[in-house]
């Protein structure tokens, strides 16, 4: 699998957003596939479309979510299909997932992110995965699953911004640091500072401002913030319990400033993300789409 990530041109600098990407797996002739399924994950920040041919990843895209969920879903799909010659009509079954899952007009079924992430991670990382942490723009999910990707325990926190991508965006905005640079910068410190003590994002932001005013260099503040974020996510994981292999999906998986600190805190190895980690939900959805389509065919 090669991932030809294209970065889209930015008009205005938005410090807190990840770049968009799309990719096609080379060497697959989709016209020979007996079943083509699609998974659409409409998240709060970005939306992904995954196309699978006979249960194999064929193409995907990841884009910003606009104000309108149906349109975001459609845009993600069109971009995934771009240049493949495949048309939306060629798809046999589509499953929507994510926070806007009920707003995917062309999906036959909506399935929660919980089920889809477990299934998707099982596919992307292999059957040894037992714990999946997904930190998205507005929520944090911890999922424990068996070797088939079936959920055994889960918990989801979508009430509180602390420990979510939103919490990271707030600090990125406050300090005018692009979100993808936070991880690297946070390690450019003489020594690891104590974590920001407030959990609540509102109070943590005030605390970070205070630290800057008291003369802390920017990188040190970032380190303290990332560490607090890792601790906070770690606490949630411990409630569900942690077991090997441990995989991380969602936007936060790309933030090494949090990932490395979390691995240290939990004393566990986190599988390196070999794919665009944001697509796990959509991959799971496309896999469920295959099962459901086959179920229907049998009827």
């Amino acid at each position: 699998m090669t991932t030809g990530t294209e970065k889209r041109k930015e008009k205005k600098v938005e410090y807190w957003k990840w770049p968009e990407s799309r990719s096609t797996t080379p060497g697959i002739d989709w016209t020979k596939a007996s079943i083509i399924t699609c998974g659409i994950d409409v998240g709060s920040v970005s939306s992904q479309a995954v196309i699978m041919t006979d249960g194999k990843l064929f193409a995907y895209s990841s884009r910003r979510t606009g104000y309108n969920s149906p349109e975001s879903a459609r845009n993600a799909l069109n971009w995934a299909l771009e240049g493949t010659g495949m048309k939306p009509e060629d798809i046999h079954y589509t499953v929507g997932t994510g926070y806007g899952r009920v707003n995917v007009p062309f999906a036959q079924r909506a399935i929660t992110e919980i089920a889809c992430h477990a299934r998707g991670a099982n596919y992307l990382y292999g059957p040894s995965v037992r714990t999946i942490l997904d930190v998205g723009g507005q929520d944090c999910k911890v999922i424990r699953c068996d070797e088939r990707g079936k959920v055994e325990t889960f918990l989801m926190n979508d009430k509180c911004a602390a420990g979510t991508g939103r919490g990271m965006e707030i600090i990125a905005d406050l300090l005018s640091v692009p979100v993808q640079d936070i991880g690297r910068l946070s390690f450019e410190v003489d020594e690891e500072p104590p974590p920001v003590s407030s959990t609540c994002t509102i109070f943590a932001k005030a605390e970070a401002t205070g630290l800057l005013e008291s003369g802390w260099p920017l990188n040190r503040v970032l380190a303290a913030y990332c560490r607090a974020m890792a601790h906070r996510i770690g606490e949630l994981i411990l409630r569900a319990g942690v077991a090997k292999d441990f995989a991380m999906t969602g936007g936060m998986a790309k933030n090494e400033g949090v990932v490395k600190r979390l691995a240290k805190e939990l004393n566990i190895d986190i599988l390196p993300p070999s794919f665009d980690t944001q697509i796990a939900g959509a991959v799971g959805a496309a896999l469920f789409a295959k099962v459901l389509a086959e179920k229907e065919q049998k009827k």
Partner: peptide
């Protein structure tokens, strides 16, 4: 499956 519904915020953990 153990389905944990609820949240954790700055004030504490609240799951059913």
């Amino acid at each position: 499956m153990l389905a944990n519904y609820g949240y954790k915020d700055g004030s504490g953990e609240y799951f059913i």
